[in-house]
Amino acid sequence: MTLNPIAHEVRASYAFVERNFNLIKRYRWWEAVWIMYGIANALAVTYIGAGMGALTGQVLDTSFLVLYLLIGTVVWRYLSIMFDSIGEMIMWERWEGTIEYTMMAPVHRLTHLVGQTLFSILYGLFHAALILLAVAFFFHIDLSQANFGAALVVLMAGSISFIGVGIIAAVLPMLYPERGAQMINFAQALFLLASGIYYPVSVLPAWLQPISALSPATYALEGIRAALLQGASLASLLPTVGVLTLTGLITIPLGVVVFNWGERYAKRTGKLKRNG
């Protein structure tokens, strides 16, 4: 078979996107459950903002609180889905029993990761958009001040940084078939706690704040909130975009190197096969 090497890699990359969407189609009832859960969770968190006035007995700008929490919920949903989808790609294939067939295919590991990442972005955006639509049905959301363009740029930069972190995490189930998935969930829990998803990181204890500074989600959320709540210009958000892009530029190549090294380790020790 003689095929342009680039066309070969593009087709191979698309294989992962198509396969994952086919899986979603087959697990459609589970998918419906996850979407319902995501919407319910977003509403439950957002109603905390709506209820703050009643809870404290004070006159508060609850529409600001609602929007603040909604942005946290939707952005976190998007980032966490992306992190899960990339981080758990090895774990899923091991569970399905297909890992050896995927690893045997004549595909660059970068192509594999690009395909999985592309799917993760599309899947994460789909979930986030559905949640946003559903919540908009329950609340009057005023986004007249919002700078959507700047928010989108920060979100994309945040995605790049999270992709790198996800790729590094994906190697864990390869090194530790049993404990790898637990480690990924632990890392995700730490991001959830320390990144200021539902509150400013300044309220966290001092010992947790260095972790906030290391999480790309912290910068992504700060930037998106500034753009959507205060209408911050892209120029004023460039330092945030810079930090996120730089994080991605470091973590993505590092992730690919670590992943390749993990694959060799698994092939040397026979851990590719073992079921976790």
Partner: peptide, 8 residues
């Protein structure tokens, strides 16, 4: 489809 695409 998945397997075939991986092989180009």
């Amino acid at each position: 489809l998945y397997a075939g695409r991986l092989y180009g």
